[in-house]
Nucleic acid binder design. Sequence first.
DNA 1: TGGGTGACCATAG
DNA 2: ACTATGGCCACCC
Length: 118
Amino acid sequence: MTTIKLSEKNKDFFDRVYQVARLIPHGRATSYGAIGKYLGSARSARMVGWAMNGCLKSNNDVPAHRVVNRSGILSGKNHFATATRMQELLEKEGIGVKNDQIVDFKTVFWDPSEELKL
DNA sequence: TGGGTGACCATAG
DNA sequence: ACTATGGCCACCC
């Protein structure tokens, strides 16, 4: 049983990442960097990935499969329950996946700092 | 305390 | 076009 330590500061960060991830529309996908940028780019994209890692271990409704790297590659599929889990979830939403990479990613791409611009 | 690692990204050569 | 490097910052040993 793995427990993620969450100090006050990063708990806030994790929370924000989860919030944005939940706002990703059905059938769309975004990147770690995009989320990091939306959160202020002060935090690097790596932290977003770290947050995602934590999200899989906690029981929340964060669609981690809709978050990929900048090339549309399913870089985190390795962290899902099964190697094909992430791809299956994406394809079920109508997102094409070929060779662990999202087909026509630029079309599927959903940028929070654009769509969610306040 | 310090150093290595990571579901990454941007820039430089 | 591709490879190399630095930066980012929380986590673990």
